[in-house]
Every structure is written in structure tokens, then in C-alpha cells.
């Protein structure tokens, strides 16, 4: 419990996380407005979820910053491990607290996008998706250990490789982690499976590698 409280306090006091959450929400609001406005003459697609397609980048960054903050200058991870040497429980607690901190941000962001477009039924699913995306990003950043390369990897995958693969009929794109909105049952399964796999890989490397 102490570990959870400590991790929670670390996450809540990182200014970069607060800023990211705020910018993400503001961007969602702007895009939701843009979609609502543009929809009058030329529909651009599903206005309930489309803004989240862009602002999920904020959640990727949130996860990356949360995980990479331990490895920045000063090497906070050394202090963390000194206080809590059992790495696997620490990793589980880290994932849980990050999920708990992200959930309200994800809920507000998802509601901002879905409610104006009349897609209230999508809100819980979108909230879960954004939270899982954050955990996936944190897991990747935990393996890469540096914020900028992890962000390049994730943003490149979500915003360049993914859309390109999806533009082709069939293929492997349906199994990427960011397809939940396109094909709900399979996409949700893909998101959960990718996140679980990434977290497991991060736990393994965290357990085995020198800090």
C-alpha cells in the first residue's frame, strides 16, 4: 500500500504529466468542435471517435513520460529500487497506479469527444481503450528507457505505419493495437493482447536488466 501511495504521489507531482493531460483534453475539445462544425456541409467520418484518433497521441506521450521519468537525469530509478527492491511487485504497482491516474483523464477526454456527437454509448469503451493505450506506451518506454526514441517508435507506429497498413485491403492491420474503433470485438481483443504482451515484456526486462 505504501508503494502504491509513493508511486501515486510521484505520478501526480510530475508537471509534464499534468501539462500533457491538459493539452490532450484541450486538443480533443478543439477537434470535437472542428468535427461538429465541419459536419454540417461535409461529413468527415465518425465524429464521436475521430477526435480521439488524433488525441490518443497525448495518451501515448503520457505513458512514455510516466515511465521514462524514472530514467531521466538523476536516475530516480535507483532511489525507487532502493526503497522497493522487489522489482516485479513494483512493476505491477506502477502499472496499476498509472492506470488509476489515467482513467479519469481518459474518461473526461473520451466524454469530450463522444458526448457532443451523440455517441454516449462509446464513452466506456473509449475510456478503456485510452487507458490501455497509456499502459502500452508506458511498457514500451520502460523497455526503451528514453522518452524521445520511445515517442518516435510509438507515434510512428500509431500515426504512420498503422494508417498505411490499414489503407491496404486485408493484411495484418486488423491485428494492430489501435484498431479497436474499426472492428470492436477483434480490435478490443488486439488492444488488450498487445498491452498485456508489452507489459509482460517490460516486466521481464525490468526484472532481468541492470537499472
Amino acid at each position: 500500500m505504501n508503494v502504491a501511495r509513493a508511486e501515486l504521489r510521484k505520478l501526480l507531482t510530475l508537471p509534464s504529466l499534468r501539462l500533457t493531460a491538459l493539452l490532450t483534453w484541450a486538443a480533443t475539445l478543439l477537434l470535437a468542435y472542428a468535427y461538429a462544425y465541419a459536419d454540417r456541409d461535409a461529413p468527415l467520418g465518425d465524429a464521436a471517435l475521430a477526435p480521439l484518433g488524433y488525441t490518443q497521441a497525448g495518451f501515448l506521450v503520457l505513458g512514455v513520460l510516466a515511465a521514462a521519468s524514472e530514467y531521466e537525469e538523476g536516475g530516480q530509478i535507483h532511489t525507487t529500487l532502493l526503497a522497493m527492491p522487489r522489482r516485479l511487485p513494483l512493476h505491477v504497482v506502477k502499472a496499476l497506479t498509472l492506470g488509476a491516474v489515467t482513467l479519469p483523464v481518459a474518461a473526461v477526454t473520451a466524454a469530450t469527444s463522444t458526448l457532443p456527437a451523440g455517441g454516449a454509448t462509446w464513452t466506456p469503451a473509449a475510456t478503456a481503450y485510452l487507458t490501455l493505450t497509456t499502459l502500452l506506451a508506458a511498457a514500451v518506454a520502460g523497455v526503451v528507457r528514453r522518452a524521445v526514441p520511445a515517442a518516435i517508435l510509438l507515434l510512428g507506429l500509431y500515426f504512420i505505419v498503422g494508417p498505411l497498413l490499414r489503407a491496404r485491403p486485408g493484411g495484418i492491420a486488423a491485428y494492430l493495437p489501435d484498431t479497436a474503433a474499426l472492428d470492436p470485438p477483434r480490435g478490443a481483443a488486439a488492444t488488450v493482447a498487445w498491452t498485456a504482451a508489452a507489459l509482460a515484456l517490460a516486466a521481464l526486462t525490468f526484472h532481468r536488466r541492470d537499472a
Binding site: L31, A57, V64, V148, A151, L155, F159
Partner: peptide
């Protein structure tokens, strides 16, 4: 690096924010 990278990469996706 994170801020410009996020901004620019999102904006280079198939339907960019600028295009919207």
C-alpha cells in the same frame, strides 16, 4: 523533443489536422 515530434507526426498522418 516530445512536443514538436507529437505535433508534427500527428499532423503527417493520412488525414492531417491541418487538412481538417
Amino acid at each position: 523533443g516530445i512536443v514538436p515530434l507529437t505535433l508534427l507526426v500527428i499532423n503527417s498522418t493520412v488525414v492531417s489536422v491541418s487538412y481538417l
